[in-house]
Amino acid sequence: MKPNDRKRRPSGRTTLSDVARAADVSPITASRALRGERSVAPELVERVKQAAEQLGYVPDPAARALASQRSNQVPVLVPLLSNALFVDVLEAVHSTLLPQGFQTLIGVTHYSPEQEEQLLRSYLAHRPAGLLLTGFDRTEAARQLIAGSGVPCVHLMELTRAHGVYCVGFSQVDAGHAMTRHLLQRGRQRIAFVAAQLDPRTMQRAEGYRRCLREQGVYDARLELLSPQPSSMRLGGELLQDLLRNHPDVDAVFFCNDDLAQGALLAALRLGIDVPGRLAVAGFNDLSGSDQMVPPLTTVRTPRGTIGEASARMLLGLMRGELPAQHSLDLGFELVVRGSS
């Protein structure tokens, strides 16, 4: 086969028919071989792949979607890209889906159900192969879009027992409960909960905090400091100072994430507050740098990379028409006790 033997469309693009002609097979066989279907003999698959490589063939996703009524694209909708937690999830999803021939499309919702609905309308118009969505906080219209599309969907980071809903995550409530119990076991009685952003998963951690303190009869609603502002280290320091100004008897603070807790530790260092002697500090997610704080931060380690991989594998099965052994896969969490508590 010589390069000048190719017959191309006027655009100059090498087509599937060119590949089939070079491999001496039908276009249908070439298509099946490139998709990795088992019905094609291995020697034919190798011949088609060699022809595609020599011709520089790049599949046309639009044509493929038209022929199969489904593309090879998988939208993944996350709240933020500035949060390392979701970057880790996306990396694991991409690494799992790419070798199987699927392209990851990233959509950012900014914690807005309305923005998520808009993204879903856009992505579903292109007939994606599957969907990966963060949590369950969405509009009723978005739920109807997902249900009516017939596109396989897996939810990340949260769990539900709802019939027909596939999800991979852990119990945010149980994780919040476990951290609060740890602080109680360290002898702390005036435990505050400080949060920002106030997305559904943050509020689930708050519910775990409340349950634990109520079980011990020491819950005080005044020790909850909830800010709708975006989470940051700077805000963590400010919220710590606000909390201690209004409640100087607080002896422990459970921050809803490590960004806030890291900022609080830096503020405590500047203000000369003894951690953990005077005040215990705890965070959530075990983000980069938490083990390097002074003192190192006690936190909850979440399996975000494993969640990304497991959810992608669950979706791969659903896209093949296989039902997973578990609709709701709980990957748990780990309490990481360090010097700040």
Rank of each mutant, 00 (worst) to 15 (best):
Q189D: 13
F193E: 12
D199C: 10
P42R: 13
A62Y: 05
V74W: 01
G283S: 00
E114L: 01
R35Y: 00
L124N: 08
R161S: 10
E309L: 03
F136Y: 07
V165Y: 05
L34Q: 02
Q189P: 11
G101K: 04
R47I: 04
P113C: 11
Q326D: 13
G332S: 15
V300D: 07
L120E: 02
Q172E: 07
G130D: 08
E334D: 15
R143Y: 14
L318W: 13
R9V: 04
G56D: 09
I106G: 04
V275L: 01
V173C: 04
A261R: 03
Q262R: 09
F284Y: 05
L55A: 04
S227K: 04
P295A: 06
Q100N: 15
Q73E: 14
R6L: 12
D242M: 03
A142M: 05
D291T: 11
Q241S: 15
S290F: 08
R301F: 10
D5R: 10
P276K: 10
A196G: 09
L243M: 13
N246D: 15
Q100C: 15
A147H: 13
R211S: 04
L119K: 11
C256F: 06
T298S: 06
A141Q: 14
R313F: 08
Q50L: 05
H126Y: 10
F255G: 01
L145V: 05
V74M: 02
Q292F: 13
S31M: 05
E224W: 00
E309T: 03
F170C: 00
R186W: 01
N72G: 15
D242H: 05
H163I: 00
R338G: 06
A264N: 06
K49R: 15
L213I: 02
V93C: 12
Q103S: 13
P248E: 01
L97C: 07
Q189N: 13
A141D: 14
A84H: 14
V275D: 02
P303R: 09
E158K: 06
H182G: 03
P99T: 11
M293W: 14
P324A: 11
P99E: 12
A129S: 13
A62I: 12
G289Q: 06
D24H: 14
D137L: 00
M293S: 09
R32V: 00
P295H: 06
G169T: 02
G236H: 03
R245Q: 15
D174Q: 12
G272T: 14
M203R: 11
R245E: 15
Q54V: 11
P230F: 06
D286F: 10
L97S: 03
P59Y: 04
V194S: 03
E53D: 15
K2T: 07
G107W: 05
L34M: 09
E37A: 14
D330R: 08
A252V: 02
P230W: 06
G107N: 04
P200V: 00
V194L: 10
Y111W: 10
A147I: 03
A125E: 09
A310K: 12
P296D: 02
R186E: 09
V275H: 03
R270S: 10
L124T: 06
A196R: 01
L132K: 01
